[in-house]
Amino acid sequence: MPSALSVRGLVKRFGAQSAVDHLDLSIREGEFYALLGPNGAGKTTTLRIVAGLLSPDSGAVEVFGIDRLRDPLAAKQVMAWVPDEPTVYDKLTPAEYLAFVAALWGIDGAAARRRADELMQRLELTPVADQRCEGFSRGMKQKVALAGALIHQPRLLILDEPLTGLDAAMARVVKDILGECTAEGATIILTTHILEVAERMADRIGIIRRGRLVAEGTMGELRQRFERADGTLEEVFLDVVAEGQETRGQDSDGQGMAAA
């Protein structure tokens, strides 16, 4: 299966601190991929680099064979990014916001209007379509941001904690929409701290720690690797984190011994 996203040797440092450390990642076309990791592991930094919001210090990023660093506009044309903090304009209405986003991606007017109506109906935004976003709750803004990401039907959808702030019913609707997107051939990369979502929805799961991919595979493969035949993703995840802490302990012991 061809690769939707290929990341090779990605490095990003903030001062002396390494956020992404020679990361290699390959995601197949049409795949639902969950990228997990403890806080500060480098998930958001990696995704921001892929989405074109940050420049890497070194490494290569290809989106459907397009070099993201050499031809950023062509790569952005096929991608959409939904950050963890919903970013919509307070002074625009959802309908205006969707018209604006559609124009940025060069979508034909009639098609954009049709798609906007469909998305607003699906996400229960139609009653507030002409109301400025300034009075919206976080969850409402999240829905508007998600509609904006979906309006140009991206081939690669990158979502950073998309379910934060949504009530259970709306979270279900969003999960259904994401499921439909993959069924229609879109590729989805999602980060989440709600491990049940990743376990239930993702085709493959990658666990990142200190900027490196330390575990990857289907749920079955991860269970097998960590010898938890009936284990949940939470247990596997905690094993990976614990393994990291042990490694760090050994590293510091080693350094201590070396210093001694």
Binding site: L98, F100, A103, L104, I107, A112, Q131, R132, E134
Partner: peptide, 29 residues
């Protein structure tokens, strides 16, 4: 407690160029 957003009916114009949409957005904001 943010104020309830005001209504701006019928202002969503689809099919602008990217430059036109950005220009419109800045003026509106």
């Amino acid at each position: 407690a943010a104020p309830r957003g005001r209504v701006a009916k019928g202002n969503a114009r689809f099919g602008r160029s990217p430059l036109g949409a950005l220009f419109w957005k800045e003026r509106q904001l």
